[in-house]
Each structure stands twice: as structure tokens, then as C-alpha cells.
């Protein structure tokens, strides 16, 4: 099931959206430099780096990432970056209660997609691996929840390292309840991918498997 067909957005329009968001991120980076705002610079730079990923994969590995996937990825990181923009005390993350949940579900959906692709590549590439749909559904959920836990660990270690160095945290942990809700909304993103997203990823799976060469037997 291709979301694009349901939404009726053409490939050209999707590329335009991606360009527009990239321009926005560049503007945020420039703004960060002008305002000497470290958080703004880091968040914009990281977002820009992630957004380049499909192009890099295509150039270096010949992986064709379709326009819909690129739009999905770009939207996720842009929404996060924009959310961290603070005007005085005001930011989308602070002002809109569901904004954090939205970005978490979206970025979790990217992680879920990566988990699905990994498992599918195993499935396609190795004769000894067979992962039927019900197992795949469960694996996507487990993979995404695990990535959420790993993310919390990284946030924690980063915060520790940055306070130890006397700086302020680039990524803020807002407290226990928030952490729990993050984990729950990560799972929501994973369920969406497990249910609707897998068709989108067929071309990526095929491309990665092709890169790895023909089917191999158990190592």
C-alpha cells in the first residue's frame, strides 16, 4: 500500500517539499551562527546531515531511496529541529503538548523502517533465514522499543558528558513521565510502520540485497 497514491502527491511535489525543508534547515543553521546559539547550530547541523543520507547512499552505494521515503525522513528531522527553536521561553516542544509525541512517533517510524530493512535483508540474503509476516511485525516492534531504550541511554550519557565538561545539555531529558511516554509513542510509530510502511521499503530492501550479492548459505 503506497501512501503516496492515497495522498495524491506527485514525486515532483514531494521533491519540492524536501527542498523547502532543507532550505529551512539551512536558514536555521545560519540563524544559529548569527545568534551564537549552540543548541540551534547543533540541531540544525545534525538535521541537515541526516537529510543528506539518501543522497549519500545513492552516490556511494547506488541505493535508490524513493522520493516518498526521503520526504518521510526529511519531515521527521525537520519537525524535530523546528521544535527545538526557542523564542524566549517559547518553543513548539514546550508550547504544544503533543509535539514531542509527534516527533517521537515519526523518528521511531524511521528506526522501525531501518529495523524492518535489516531483518528483510537477512531474510532475502540468507537461505537459512526465513521471517514470516507475523514474526516480522513483532520484530519491528521489538527493534523500535530497543532503539528507544538505546536512545535514552545515549541522551543520558551525553547529558552526563556535557555537564561534566561544564556545558548545558544539547538534548534535554524532561523527566520520568516524559521518558515513559516517549517509549510508548515510539511504539506507536513502530506499529504504523509495521502495518502500513513495509511496502514503501521494498525497493530499499531489494537494493541492499543486490549490493550484498546473491543469496548465500549460512555462514
Amino acid at each position: 500500500m503506497k501512501l503516496r497514491r492515497r495522498l495524491g502527491i506527485g514525486v515532483r511535489r514531494q521533491r519540492q517539499f524536501v527542498r523547502a525543508m532543507e532550505v529551512g534547515l539551512v536558514a536555521m543553521l545560519v540563524g544559529g551562527v548569527l545568534l551564537r546559539d549552540t543548541g540551534m547550530i547543533v540541531n540544525a547541523a545534525l538535521a541537515l546531515a541526516v537529510v543528506q543520507l539518501p543522497a549519500v547512499l545513492q552516490r556511494d552505494y547506488g541505493l535508490v531511496v524513493d522520493a516518498g521515503l526521503t520526504l518521510w525522513l526529511t519531515t521527521a528531522v525537520t519537525l524535530h529541529a523546528v521544535g527545538t527553536l526557542a523564542v524566549g521561553e517559547w518553543s513548539l516542544y514546550e508550547a504544544v503538548w503533543w509535539y514531542d509525541h509527534l516527533t517521537h512517533a515519526l523518528s521511531a517510524s524511521i528506526v522501525a523502517a531501518a529495523g524492518y530493512t535489516t531483518a528483510r535483508v537477512f531474510d532475502v540474503h540468507y537461505d537459512a533465514v526465513r521471517l514470516p509476516a507475523p514474526f516480522m511485525f513483532a520484530f519491528i516492534l521489538v527493534f523500535t522499543i530497543a532503539a528507544g531504550v538505546l536512545w535514552e541511554v545515549l541522551e543520558f550519557l551525553l547529558a552526563r558528558a556535557s555537564t561534566a565538561l561544564g556545558g548545558s545539555a544539547v538534548l534535554v531529558q524532561y523527566g520520568l513521565g516524559d521518558t515513559m511516554l516517549d517509549l510508548v509513542f515510539n511504539t506507536v510509530g513502530a506499529v504504523l510502520v509495521a502495518t502500513f510502511g513495509t511496502a514503501h521499503l521494498a525497493s530499499v530492501v531489494e537494493a541492499v540485497s543486490d549490493r550484498l550479492g546473491g543469496r548465500s548459505t549460512d555462514p
Binding site: F139, I145, A146, A147, G148, V149, M180, L183, V184
Partner: peptide
């Protein structure tokens, strides 16, 4: 992956 996920589910 399952061990990490178990920690997350158990916490929630």
C-alpha cells in the same frame, strides 16, 4: 534487541 526492549517494556 529483545534484551533492550525487555528493559523498556518492563520500565513502562
Amino acid at each position: 534487541v529483545s534484551t533492550l526492549a525487555a528493559a523498556g517494556v518492563w520500565a513502562v
